[in-house]
């Protein structure tokens, strides 16, 4: 802030963003812009990495070979998406190791939706349609982000995740037209994942102090509540068309606004899970630490091989 040219540079920076230009590594940027991006991108990367765990547990129990290949490919994509995002964050001056250490030591945040358990195969279907569906809405918005590396990672991720949502929706459709037991499986999975999916869009706009600055600098182009409303308007009629329901007795179509409206999210639960007190927080971190330790010999072998060949 002692920089006498700060105001001029800030004005130029904001003009560039207003013109639709991407800010690239090496370009001038306010320190707060860099910090906000590191916070968001590293959380996003960690979410992809932890996001492998709830569904990964079901790979060995897939009902047929096709479903197994689909789920393997989806979980493999999430590992790749974590890498795209760690790369994007690194261009801002944080290292991959710092981010991974913060995750393993329990200091980093990730999407709290992954702190809920997957109790049945239909949860894989509901996660695809609801959780990946919500993620794609958020990521489609972030693809317009003013920071080049984050935008590019989002464009690639959105292109790849289309099938993540569709494979889940396809399963829910089939269950909804199947036996009563299958229909019930689908309904119970939707009941479990509905509220966690709505919480994925983040706190209520009035509790989201970063949003005005993020929007001013083109990091976000829409608010949490706008995206959450778009999700409701797409998903509620879709779920109802299948003869299924959302677990919200107050959900109704508001003629005046043309939007679906339900009851308020349980914000106490939202903050509790974010702060680490969700049903699966400890288990997820333990699984990540074990995976990191179990991979140690691979890293050591690779390093030894490179040294021997070098």
């Amino acid at each position: 802030m002692d920089d006498p040219t700060y105001d001029t540079r800030l004005a130029e920076f904001e003009t560039r963003i207003a013109r639709g230009e991407k800010i690239e590594p090496g370009d001038w940027m306010p320190d707060a812009y860099r910090k906000q991006l590191i916070r968001m991108i590293s959380q996003h990367a960690n979410s992809e990495v932890v996001g492998m765990l709830p569904e990964g547990a079901w790979i060995t129990r897939a009902p047929n070979l096709r479903r197994k290949m689909v789920l393997l490919a989806k979980v493999q994509d999430e590992a790749g998406h974590g890498q795209y995002l760690y790369h994007a964050a690194e261009t801002l001056g944080i290292s991959r190791d710092e981010m991974i250490d913060a995750l393993l030591e329990g200091r980093a945040k990730y999407a709290s939706v992954f702190n809920y358990p997957t109790l049945g195969w239909a949860d894989v279907a509901a996660i695809g349609w609801l959780v990946d569906g919500a993620a794609i809405m958020n990521q489609t918005m972030l693809a317009h982000c003013s920071y080049g590396p984050y935008s590019r990672a989002m464009v690639r991720i959105c292109a790849e995740e289309g099938f993540h949502k569709k494979q889940g929706q396809e399963m829910i459709i089939r269950y909804s037209q199947g036996t009563p037991a299958q229909k019930q499986m689908a309904q119970e999975a939707i009941d479990r994942w509905w509220w966690p999916a709505l919480m994925m869009f983040g706190p209520h706009d009035s509790d989201s102090p970063n949003t005005p600055q993020l929007m001013r600098w083109g990091i976000k182009t829409r608010t949490n509540d706008e995206l959450r409303q778009e999700f409701l308007d797409e998903l509620v009629p879709g779920i109802q068309a299948l003869g299924l329901s959302v677990p919200d007795p107050e959900m109704h179509y508001d003629e005046a606004t043309g939007h679906w409206v339900g009851r308020e999210i349980d914000w106490d639960e939202f903050w509790r899970v974010i702060k680490g007190d969700g049903p699966m927080n400890a288990s997820r971190l333990a699984a990540r630490r074990k995976a990191h330790e179990d991979g140690r010999w691979v890293r050591e072998a690779a390093a030894a091989y490179a040294q021997a060949m070098g």
Binding site: R66, A73, G162, F163, Q169, E170
Partner: peptide, 14 residues
């Protein structure tokens, strides 16, 4: 091909 969104006909089916 199962990685391709166009392999899932969810819009048409809905």
């Amino acid at each position: 091909l199962f990685r391709m969104p166009n392999q899932y006909h969810t819009v048409f089916t809905m």
